[in-house]
Amino acid sequence: MSKIHEAFAKAKTENRAALIAYLPAGYPSEAGAVECIAAMVEGGVDIVEIGFPYSDPVMDGPTIQAAVDISLKNGTKSATVIETVRQVAAFGVPALVMSYWNPIERYGVTKFAADFHAAGGAGVITPDLTPEEAGEWVTATSNEDVDRVFLVALSSSDERISKVSGVTTGFVYAGAVMGVTGARTSVSDAVQGLVEKVRRHSDLPVAVGLGVSTPEQANEIAQYADGVIVGSAFVSAIERGGAAAAKELAVSLTKGLGKS
C-alpha cells in the first residue's frame, strides 16, 4: 500500500476523514515553511501538500497568489521544493507536491519523478495537466512509485471523471467550488453529488478542497468524503501568527473530521 493510501486507511479505522494541508514551499521562508509544516503535523495534519511556487498561478485566489509571490521573491527554486519535500517526508507523513505543469516539464519529467521519489515524496498533484496530455508523466511516476493526483470539478462530466480516475493513483481531488482557491463561508451542496459521482468510477479515496477553512465545513465534508483539504486558511493563519497559529488551526480542524 502506498504511503498516501496508508494515511487514508488509518483515518478510516479511526472513523474520520484525513486532514490534508497545503503550504507553498518557501513561504514565509524556506526554513519557515518547514517549521510551519512541522507544527501543522503536530496539530494533526495527516498528509502535506507542498506548493511548487509558480509565476502564473491561474487556479489560485489572492491569498495563495500573495504567498507564492513572496516565496518567489525569497528566491525559491526547484531545488528548494525538492529539499522541502525531503525535510517534510522525515516527519513521517506523506509529502505531496502540488505543481502547475510548466515547472515540472522544465525540470524534466523523468528527472522530476526520480528526484522527488529520492527525496521521499509520496505523490504529485497536477491541477493543470489533463489526462490526455499525461502520457509521459504516467510512465515516469509509475517507474518511480510516485502517486498521481488529478482534479475533478463540479462541472466535470462522467466521461471526464472516468478519464481522470483512469490516470489517478493517490486520491481524487474534488474541487468544491466553481473558481479559484481561497477561503469561503460555505461549501456547496453540489460537492457531495460530485464525490458520489467519482465513487461510481473509482475505488480511490476522494478528498474535497477549495474554500475549506473551518471545522464546521470540515465536518460537513467528512460525512461523505475521505479527506478534507485546507490551503488558503493555513496561509492566512501563518500570516497572522506563524507556526503557532498554523498548529492551532490544524488542531481545531481535526475536531471536525469525525464521521457521525
Binding site: Y54, S55, D56, L72, K77, S78, N102, P103, I104, E105, R106, Y107, D128
Partner: peptide, 14 residues
C-alpha cells in the same frame, strides 16, 4: 493552457 514557445527561466517561471 497552450503548448508553445514561452519566455521562461531555468525553473519554468515565466
Amino acid at each position: 493552457g497552450a503548448r508553445s514557445y514561452i519566455m521562461q527561466d531555468e525553473d519554468g517561471q515565466t
